[in-house]
C-alpha cells in the first residue's frame, strides 16, 4: 500500500510530505507508544503508528528504516519532530481516530503486522 492509499483509508491529515505519498510503499505496520518496543520489534520498512509526539519518535523511525509515521488520537508532533522529519524527507500523518480504530482500518485494508519473534523469558 502506498501512503496515499493509507491517507484515504484512515482519513488522515498530511502534516508534511504530500509529494512523497504516492512514492512511499509500506507492507507492514507497527503501533506502539513505547519506542523501546519499536526498536526491538518493528521490521524495516514498516509504517509506525504512535500517540507520542516528541522528536525521538522521528529519530527512532529514521534509525529503524521506518519510512513514515502516523500520529493517532489527533496528536500533533512537536515542532522539533516536524523539523527533523522535513530535514530527512519523512512524511508525517495525523489520524483523528484512536489507535485501535486506526489500526483496525489499516489491518482490514491489508497491512500486515510485524511478527514478534519468540525469545528467552
Amino acid at each position: 500500500m502506498n501512503l496515499k492509499e493509507i491517507v484515504s483509508c484512515i482519513g488522515a491529515e498530511t502534516l508534511h510530505g504530500e509529494d512523497l505519498l504516492e512514492k512511499v510503499e509500506v507492507e507492514k505496520a507497527y503501533a506502539s507508544d513505547l519506542m523501546s518496543d519499536v526498536l526491538a520489534f518493528a521490521w524495516p520498512g514498516t509504517l509506525l503508528l504512535t500517540g507520542l509526539t516528541n522528536v525521538q519518535i522521528v529519530r527512532t523511525a529514521q534509525m529503524m528504516d521506518i519510512p513514515a509515521v502516523v500520529f493517532v488520537r489527533g496528536k500533533r508532533p512537536q515542532e522539533e519532530a516536524v523539523a527533523l522529519a522535513k530535514n530527512i524527507g519523512m512524511p508525517l500523518l495525523v489520524s483523528s481516530m484512536s489507535m485501535y480504530e486506526t489500526c483496525g482500518l489499516l489491518y482490514k485494508a491489508g497491512l500486515s503486522p510485524c511478527v514478534i519473534p519468540a525469545r528467552e523469558a
Binding site: 507508544d33 513505547l34 519506542m35 523501546s36 518496543d37 519499536v38 526498536l39 526491538a40 504512535t50 507520542l52 516528541n54 525521538q56 519518535i57 527512532t60 525469545r119
Partner: peptide, 14 residues
Amino acid sequence: MGFGAGMGLPNIKR
C-alpha cells in the same frame, strides 16, 4: 518519551 522499558540491553545482545 517512550523509553525506559528495559528492552535496550537485551536488544543489543540479540
